[in-house]
Simulated scan of single mutants.
Amino acid sequence: MIDRAMRAALARPLDRAAAALDRPGITPDRLTVAGLVLALGAAGAAAAQWWAVAVALWLVSRIADGLDGTLARRRRARGRGGESEAGGFLDITADFIAYGTGVFGVAWGASAAYDAPWWPFLLVLVAYYVNGTAFLAFSSIAERTGRRIDDGRSLSFLGRIAEGTETIAVHALWLILPFWAWQIALVWAVFVGVSAVQRVVAGYRLLR
Rank of each mutant, 00 (worst) to 15 (best):
R12M: 02
G88F: 05
A77S: 12
P120L: 09
A181V: 11
D3A: 08
W118V: 06
L14G: 00
G66M: 12
G146S: 10
P28I: 08
T93N: 02
T70E: 14
V53E: 10
D65A: 15
L158C: 05
E143G: 03
G102E: 05
F157P: 00
V194A: 06
T32W: 04
A142N: 09
L155Q: 07
A116M: 05
A116Q: 04
T101A: 12
D115K: 04
F96W: 12
A45N: 09
S111M: 06
V126C: 12
E163V: 05
F104H: 00
R16Q: 13
W108I: 05
A142K: 11
V201C: 05
L206N: 08
T32L: 05
A98T: 11
R16E: 13
D15K: 05
L59N: 06
A11I: 00
A127I: 04
R73G: 10
T101R: 00
G87R: 02
A112F: 01
W188G: 02
T93D: 00
Q183D: 06
R16P: 00
I184A: 02
I92T: 13
A52Q: 13
R16W: 15
W182K: 03
A56I: 14
A20K: 10
A47P: 01
R160E: 13
V170N: 00
R160V: 08
A127T: 04
L175F: 12
G66D: 08
A86R: 12
F104Y: 06
A43I: 03
L36I: 11
S139Q: 03
A54S: 15
Y128S: 02
P28D: 09
P28K: 07
A34H: 01
